[in-house]
Amino acid sequence: MRSAMSMIELVFAIVIMGIAVMSLPLILTQVQNNNAFAMQQESILAAKAKIGDILTYEWDENSYDATASHSFVLDTANGDGELNATAGTPRRVGHIDTDNRRKFFPVATQASAIGADGGDLDDVDDFDGTSNLLTVTAGEDAGTLDYIFDLNLTTTVNYVADNANYAASPLNGFALNFANAPATPTNIKVISVTVSGGDQNITLRAFTCNIGESTLLPSRPYQ
């Protein structure tokens, strides 16, 4: 039985320990990168979920008609004239002239300004300027997590300039400009959700348009 290690064994031990020590910074960096990526994905998921929720609401305060039980297309003060109702009809060019299809109100009804109804949360622009604090954790037991952080979701809703030449083929003249939102209604709204927290600052956007909806056909008995 040997009482000591050989020189070669000592050298091997020193080399292995050196490799392990040099690897520690790389391991720590990778852990930090993984945590940052996880936080980024949580932020994106939170923003997508918020936008998805907002898009379930009516396009405008005036879109829905309770008597007809569906949403109509609205007139817009600053919308592209090519998308207005054609003279003497409740439909714009491209609408199918038949029952249960998308159309304007029988009497001209204007879209409202952003937040004009006082924020009663019945249409998408009521979410303009709202903020939600979302506490995010990486698991069920917060006491054993690598990180825990809060996300702040800030929502803005604006009209987008609607100045395209829809009669052109292909369509031209359309340019999105988020910096100069029109004060009067157009046919397009943009929903922006900015997520901050956990060293994140991410903004996702979605668009929703003034197209109304088709009514549901009455059910028929099985033949």
Rank of each mutant, 00 (worst) to 15 (best):
E9S: 06
G173R: 13
T98R: 03
L204W: 09
G198Y: 04
N100L: 13
A164G: 12
D125L: 01
A113G: 04
A13W: 06
G79P: 01
I8D: 15
S196A: 08
R101Q: 11
A116S: 10
N35I: 15
Y159K: 01
P106F: 09
N100H: 05
D120S: 01
N201T: 02
L45T: 13
T156W: 01
N187L: 05
A181P: 00
K189G: 05
S69F: 06
R102M: 00
A111I: 02
R2V: 10
Y159W: 12
S6K: 12
A142T: 12
M1K: 13
F127R: 04
T215A: 12
G52D: 08
G143N: 15
A47K: 05
G198A: 10
L217R: 03
A66V: 15
Q223M: 06
A116D: 02
G118R: 05
T156D: 10
N177M: 08
I96F: 07
F178E: 15
S6L: 05
D99R: 09
A77N: 11
W59M: 05
V136A: 13
I51A: 10
G115T: 03
D123F: 02
Y57K: 10
I8F: 09
H70I: 00
E82H: 03
N158A: 02
S71I: 01
A38I: 15
A183E: 12
T203L: 06
N177H: 04
K48R: 15
A66F: 04
D125C: 07
T154C: 06
I19C: 13
T208S: 03
N187M: 06
